[in-house]
Design a protein around this nucleic acid. Structure first.
Lengths: 185, 185
DNA sequence: GTCTATATAATGATAGAC
DNA sequence: GTCTATCATTATATAGAC
């Protein structure tokens, strides 16, 4: 990774934190400027399209990260149960690296949904299908596998919401631990 | 219910729709004015404290509704399993009446969290404890009951997030149906 | 209770110097 | 690449007539 791309990476990370904590409309240029240490004009140098472009870059980055750290681990030569466990660990790693709640969820609620809603929807249907395939490999019939896949996504995102609602940081890891208990072995 | 309180109720409902769809910061007075058919000055007549007061009223209303329609049904003379089923049906009724995603979740993410976070956190801990008690009545040991209660909250809120993310309206009812399968009988 | 008109502050965005 | 200074627009909020 070059020096420049490291700087870019750090910048994206700092912007992401603001969007996650305050939502799309709450992420004002003043807040983004303060969080990055850059003036507003400098932000427009990096993102000529302003907030809209920042959100788009953040969304693409988040999707790529979740794919790389979590869903990519559903593939491989190991038995299905082991891959499911690696997947959960990978998603947990993503949240620890990027912070919770997940940017995808936050952007899906705000007004960014009007612009990026279909992208997100298609991605999530893909991901759910990938999960369902693994449950089928583990021996579940198609319908049962589809239900299990939907269950997993519900817990993954529900745990983040409940963590935000209860203010208990370790709710998340406990939820993932409970999820692992329900997997085939 | 008097004529005046019916008007007030409808007003709160219309405001809630805007806050749910756009989040706290996205719910501008212009949008709130358009949704209610009232001028901005008229909104300040009903809510002298402006947006902050609206959000507070909406939050109290939402908590009261969830309590009345869902969690209150955890009590009663019926066997625990039946009460759990009534609870889920009640929560579903709340979402159909008030619309998804739930206002509590939306307000917990935006900047309203700084003001109302502790209120929400305390309420959710109470609700989770109420759920855990019912699982204990159904025969589960305390730790197991606590895990089941946390599971239920995760699904309740995760299903709403996944519905928003996938854009599939019937994901919600399918998730609740799956939840019922996992209850004691 | 609702309106029009307006005040004041903050927002997203640009120009141009360095 | 970053800055200061500034723009036009929109935001929340208020005054006062009806």
């Amino acid at each position: 990774m070059t020096e420049a791309s490291r700087h870019r990476d750090q910048l994206v990370r700092q912007l992401g934190r603001v969007f996650r904590e305050r939502g799309y409309e709450g992420a004002t240029l003043t807040a983004l400027s303060r969080a990055t240490g850059l003036g507003k004009a400098s932000l427009y140098h990096h993102f000529p399209g302003g907030k809209a472009e920042m959100a788009e870059v953040l969304l693409r980055t988040a999707i790529a990260d979740v794919q790389r750290l979590a869903f990519a681990r559903l593939d491989g030569p190991e038995p299905p149960a082991a891959r499911l466990e690696r997947f959960v660990a990978g998603y947990q790693a993503y949240l620890e690296e990027s912070g919770a709640p997940c940017l995808l969820g936050v952007l899906a609620l705000g007004s960014a949904r009007a612009v990026h809603g279909e992208t997100l929807a298609a991605q999530f249907r893909d991901w759910r299908a990938a999960l369902a395939r693994v449950f089928e490999e583990a021996g579940a019939k198609p319908k049962r596998a589809a239900r299990s896949a939907a269950d997993v996504l519900d817990v993954l995102y529900g745990a983040q919401m409940v963590t935000a609602l209860t203010g208990e940081p370790d709710h998340l890891q406990r939820a993932f631990k409970r999820l692992l208990r329900r997997f085939p072995r």
